[in-house]
Amino acid sequence: MNRILILAGLASLALCAWVLPLIVSDYVVRLLIMVCINIVLVGSMCLANGFTGVFSLGQVGFVAIGAYVSGILSLSLADKASYLPDLPMFLAHIEMATLPATLIAGLVCAAIAIVVGLPLMRLSGHHVSVATMGFMIIVNVVIINADSFTRGARTFTGVPTDMTLPWVVGWAVLAIFLLARLIYSPIGLALRSVREDVIAAQAVGLPVLGTRLLAFSFGAFLAGVGGSLYGHYLGSFSAQTFFFPLMVSLITMLVLGGMSSLSGVVTGVIVVTALSEMLRNLERGVHLGPVSIPPLFGASQVVLGLLFILVMIYRPRGLFEDREISSVFKRRKQRSNS
């Protein structure tokens, strides 16, 4: 019964993804594409940040690596010759389709995460936050200076822009599915017990470092995939695309929905996207009959920031805390059965 429901849901989602662009405006389609990409990115953060209690501020570093790796791999040979003339031989003659480039980008990020995480995942609290933020800054500096791979401070461009709605919907569903499998499995239990009490987890024989490392590197894989999708959506980006502003907006989505809940992740992304688009269109000025408010560019960020603070004060664990939509249904069902 449950499986049929899920399958039916997926099928209708796929149908929507195909048909929707024919009905709604291009602007809405773009928003939906960004929502899906952000679900992958925020999902990548929730694993480490929400479920293991290691609050990483460095995820955007992996997003950057993913975008650049996939960008370099999928750039056409002609563009490579003109934009990246100093690329090493083994890369200069590769022109890859988006899908394999995205997977490789994810794997590269996972590998880097293991190397970086081995020392960093030993830290906890704000120390790990500040250290991972340091990682992000280091990635930024390296990208700006690795001229022959990234064009340095110049815009990296020519990446095929082939992100259609069905593609990103597929990736978002896959990401949530993989995360759900991982979180609601014995490994997921281990993750949460590491979050709740490190010493108790160690006492019952859980490999704390290994568990955190798993979450961190799987998160990095998804971040790399999301970075690749983002890069293929934009077509052009630079090191500054993947820096503090992106980090702040991803964290806002993560925290608003509730970082220990996949439903929270999806809701957070949708709510923050809808809200910031609404505010962005409102701040351009409002004319209602005799009342007219002049444009106040920047007001949307101020309101969003204040809202973030209010959420921190009144609902610090997000809208969903650690509950899932499915568990609400289940509880109701149990109640009606008894």
Binding site: Y27, Y230, Y233, S236, T241, R280, R284
Partner: peptide
């Protein structure tokens, strides 16, 4: 018709669509 791109490429692609299609 002024839009603020907020130095954010995702917003810039959205406003591009708003300007041209809407």
């Amino acid at each position: 018709v002024v839009y603020d791109g907020k130095t954010d490429p995702a917003i810039i692609t959205s406003l591009a669509s708003q300007l041209i299609n809407s």
